[in-house]
Design a protein around this nucleic acid. Structure first.
Length: 573
RNA sequence: CGGGGCGUGGCGCAGUCCGGCAGCGCACCUGCUUUGGGAGCAGGGGGUCGGAGGUUCAAAUCCUCUCGCCCCGACCA
């Protein structure tokens, strides 16, 4: 490709709207342009990279035996009503109405449609297992799109769905997908981790997220040396026990005028924050729940929502707290609290001589003890894990890192097949719902994640496996006919050998061309310049390391070809 | 949805408080010089100042409404 025949309007300055590295660079390197908030056009450079990622994904999916299909973006409301998600999915589901007043969803994911296919066409256990996948544009009406293509309203995703007769079969495919995902992200040159995660609204139970390490990532992961890794929502950890062996002292009500927060109360009473038992009142789908947590720790609302099975979980308003507990905000406590479900974090069982609110203004209890003074209905793990908590598997300290979620694999079970009556006949002739799995990869997000990891102040340095071009030829002076002829010769030589090459044949000064070359990040650059021409050499430079070698002009094609092969080997699995 | 901010040529911005010729840098076009890390000189094109309404002799600037975009939070397969 000759630059002058290409379309890559690079930007010298960063558009004001971009905040994170990948977003800035995708705009500057002319990979994409914004059409609307969270909606982007891919320009030639961006599309070339996207296609490379897609190709790797296709190869690896095909390797697992999955079959590619293409489902429509438009899916009828009826299917979504059958699964129940027309109501549950909420505003994130883009809905459209046709001229007859019929409603459709713009697919954010395709469990409904694929389950509809299976129930119509698959009758026997002999046809199972079966995995179908597609690479397609998805729509999610995100509350707040951000970070460019990382959280967009329209994006490209690979989604796969597997159907099974038995749990064992699902387990087998799940592992195959785990393997395939690992291969895919390795081949894309990403540094990543697979972590156990919360399943969220898609349903199902066991799930792993594939997270690319990135400081700008939206997700936090807690991990241990022993291999344990889980998302913030899901992570479990052990916390230091406090005062478990103290003798219980007599309950006492004390005056705490205006002291509402943990810090205020404990400082006023000269107690440690962990002595305090926080009582937080939540509104879960219209029902009030009092949640008890040690004063120095936070409640993990994702865990709480899961325990409660809530679809909507909010902190109660001050008026609601007054109604439920009899006391104002900041003075709630479990002692004497009636008519409300009380659930406690499991760490509460170790607490002795606690401080709690007295459910009246300006008063707290001290020396509150479990069993004697109150009894929660149930204990659950509701702890928001923090660095330094201990691993539940090995007891070592947990550390955390941030990441971008690029893929997720779920075991769905029979959630959709039961709701949509998608059945097959087993060996005994009994009708049973399909056992399902589902497996997604954000293709465009993977592109952005690759940039987050493979870029510096000057621009991107692509892993060659997903680079828009493999070699970038840079003639420094287009008005020097000998130099142009040499560059041309190398260009044609590489094309003949099947190398993807771009030549910057613009009448630009060298400085500008070097800047653009660094920006778009083609891994190998060949500089054909007057300096080298005198000695009959050209320079070959690796974008990532800046390592430069001079080679005889005649041997440039072969040298570059060797480097392409070497680089490619790095991303083979 | 709550809070904050911004819409002026393709991009980055000044001008808005205090109404009075729409400007700057980059990019673009033409010519000449220049050619190894974002060149110089000369000439040139391009903006109904997000939109609508209002106040005024006069509105980018003041008022009202509205649309869009960005950031923080809440939310999130």
């Amino acid at each position: 490709m000759r630059w002058t025949r290409f379309f890559s309007p690079t930007l010298k300055e960063t558009p004001a709207e971009a905040e994170v590295k990948s977003h800035k660079l995708m705009l500057r390197a002319a990979m994409m342009r914004k059409v609307s908030a969270g909606v982007y056009s891919l320009l030639p450079l961006g599309l070339r990279v996207t296609r490379k990622v897609e190709r790797i994904v296709r190869e690896e999916m095909d390797r697992t035996g999955a079959l590619e299909i293409l489902m429509p973006v438009l899916s009828p409301a009826e299917l979504w009503k059958e699964s129940g998600r027309w109501a549950v999915y909420g505003k994130e589901l883009m809905r459209v109405e046709d001229r007859h007043g019929r409603f459709f969803a713009l697919g954010p994911t395709h469990e409904e449609v694929v389950t509809d296919i299976a129930r119509g066409e698959v009758r026997s256990y002999r046809q199972l297992p079966m995995t179908l996948y597609q690479i397609q544009t998805k729509f999610r009406d995100e509350v707040r799109p951000r970070f460019g293509i990382v959280r967009a309203r329209e994006f490209i995703m690979k989604d796969a769905y597997s159907f099974h007769a038995t749990e064992e079969s699902l387990e087998e495919t799940y592992s195959k997908m785990y393997e395939a995902y690992t291969r895919i992200f390795k081949r894309c040159g990403l540094r990543f981790g697979a972590v156990t995660a919360d399943s969220g609204a898609i349903g199902g139970d066991v799930t792993h997220e594939f997270m690319v390490f990135a400081e700008t990532g939206e997700s936090r992961v807690f991990a241990c040396k022993c291999g344990y890794a889980a998302t913030e929502e899901r992570a479990e950890g052990g916390i230091e026990k406090r005062a478990a062996d103290e003798e219980p002292l007599p309950l006492e009500k004390v005056s705490t005028p205006g002291m509402k927060t943990v810090e205020e109360v404990t400082a006023f009473l000269r107690k440690e924050p962990w002595r305090l038992l926080k009582t937080i009142i939540y509104n879960s789908d219209g029902e009030y729940v009092a949640v008890l947590m040690r004063g120095d720790r936070e409640i993990n609302e994702a865990k709480l929502a899961k325990v409660l099975g809530s679809s909507s979980l909010e902190l109660a308003e001050p008026e609601e707290i007054l109604k439920v507990s009899g006391g104002p905000l900041g003075f709630s406590g479990p002692v004497g609290l009636k008519g409300v479900r009380i659930i406690a974090d499991r760490s509460v069982s170790d607490m002795v001589n606690m401080v709690t609110g007295a459910n009246e203004a300006d008063a707290h209890f001290v020396n509150v003890n479990l069993g004697r003074d109150f009894e929660p209905a149930e204990f659950h793990d509701l702890l928001q894990v923090a660095e330094g908590d201990t691993c539940m598997k090995c007891g070592e300290m947990l550390t955390s890192w941030r990441g971008i979620e690029v893929g997720q694999i779920f075991k769905l079970g029979t959630k959709y097949s039961t709701a949509m009556r998608a059945h097959f006949l087993d060996e005994t002739g009994t009708e049973r719902p399909f056992i399902m799995g589902c497996y997604g990869i954000g293709i465009t997000r993977t592109v952005a994640a690759a940039i987050e990891q493979n870029s510096d102040d000057d621009g991107i340095f692509w892993p060659i496996s997903i680079a828009p071009f493999e070699v970038h030829i840079l003639p420094t002076n287009m008005s020097d006919p000998d130099l142009v002829a040499t560059a041309d010769e190398i260009y044609r030589g590489l094309l003949d050998r099947g190398v993807e090459v771009i030549m910057d044949d613009r009448e630009e000064r060298p400085g500008g061309k070097f800047k653009d070359a660094d920006l778009i990040g083609v891994p190998i650059r060949i500089t054909v310049g007057e300096r080298g021409m005198k000695d009959g050499v050209v320079e070959i430079r690796l974008r990532e390391t800046g390592k430069t070698t001079k080679v005889e002009t005649a041997g440039a094609v072969d040298a570059a070809l060797d480097m392409v092969r070497d680089l490619k080997k790095r991303y083979e699995v």
